[in-house]
């Protein structure tokens, strides 16, 4: 069954068109990643899919329920974890969770038993009577996720779930997402963390300037840009001038310094490996390690969103 269906969705804000007719479907039980640079239309899409904001034209449905005409029925099927940890600082963790359950009309017995198990799952039960004001960022994020799951949703919208979190919170949240997926819950995940999307998502959509640039599994997307392969090499006691030597090698499109290693972007890794060894012999330096890499999801993202990454930051080139 189709969990989320979006057809030709357009959203205009006066003179700005935030979404320019996007269409996609998410299957039930799938973990679907929604990637895009800031201002690409990710949050606008989530606001429409959760019925907060109506589309200018086009349609969207949640488990067959039209989000405009059957908003409340559609919302009953979903849990939402907003980008900001929007919890009530002046209430305890328990009262936050119970309030969320009351908004979703979860019965008293169910909300109490489910509330307890969710707080235990997210490692917050020991602090359940404490006001949230004293919680760390990671604890608030975990509580936000618990609140998003209190109604036992069939679809979970996660907006940047692990952004800027500590390792413990990150691990707990990723484990929960994996667990939800095995239980058949559909997860719609927006993230800036491309590696997170790579390891978590069944499929990924890349959105840019309000249009879908690509939708596919991470591995298939990577295959579309085989030209972005690379060789990563580490030298013992290499002089910084080695970078110039590497840059002049044949078939090397770009050289990036990554920590104590150099990454050489090329279409022909075997040829470059040979050339690197010759360069090292010429410079009288020892090669400690050398590995070849296929294109990463980040490369796909950069290619499709036309971002140019430089050591000084990221800038749009179109």
């Amino acid at each position: 069954m189709i969990a989320i269906h979006v057809s030709d969705l357009v959203k205009r804000f006066e003179t700005i068109t935030a979404l320019q007719g996007i269409s996609f479907s998410v299957n039930e039980g799938e973990t679907f990643g929604f990637l895009g640079p800031n201002g690409a239309g990710k949050t606008t899409t989530i606001r429409i899919l959760t019925g907060i904001s109506p589309p200018t034209s086009g349609s969207a449905s949640i488990l067959g329920k039209d989000i405009v005409n059957e908003t409340i029925a559609a919302r009953k099927e979903i849990g939402i974890v907003h980008e900001t940890s929007n919890v009530y600082d002046d209430l305890s963790a328990w009262k936050n969770l119970i309030f969320s359950a009351e908004l979703y009309s979860v019965g008293k017995e169910e909300r109490e038993s489910r509330g307890k198990s969710l707080l235990e799952l997210f490692g917050l039960w020991e602090r359940h009577n404490d006001r949230v004001k004293g919680f760390s960022k990671g604890m608030k994020r975990r509580l936000t996720l618990a609140m998003g799951l209190i109604n036992n949703p069939r679809i979970l919208f996660l907006d940047e779930p692990t952004s800027g979190l500590d390792v413990q919170s990150n691990l707990i949240i990723r484990e929960v997402i994996r667990d939800l997926n095995t239980k058949g819950v559909t997860v719609f995940l927006t993230t800036h963390n491309i590696e997170e999307a790579n390891v978590t998502c069944d499929r990924v959509a890349i959105i840019n300037h309000g249009q879908i640039a690509a939708i596919d599994s991470p591995e298939r997307l990577k295959k579309t840009i085989q030209s972005v392969q690379s060789v990563k090499v580490a030298f013992a006691d290499a002089d910084p001038s080695i970078k110039e030597c590497l840059r002049e090698l044949p078939l090397v499109n770009e050289v990036r310094k990554e920590g104590d290693k150099y990454r050489l972007i090329t279409e022909k890794p075997p040829v470059v490996i040979q050339a690197v060894m010759e360069c090292a012999a010429e410079q009288k330096v020892t090669v400690i390690s050398m590995n070849t890499y296929g294109p990463s999801l980040e490369d796909v993202f950069i290619r499709l969103t036309c971002l140019d990454v430089r050591t000084k930051g990221v800038r749009a080139i179109d």
């Binding site: 959760t50 019925g51 907060i52 409340i72 029925a73 919302r75 009953k76 939402i80 907003h82 900001t84 929007n86 919890v87 009530y88 600082d89 969320s100 908004l103 979703y104 009309s105 609140m147």
Partner: peptide
Amino acid sequence: RMKTFDRLLSAPIS
């Protein structure tokens, strides 16, 4: 400001 109002707006209520 705290984005908790979004919680109400996205709940299954009118």
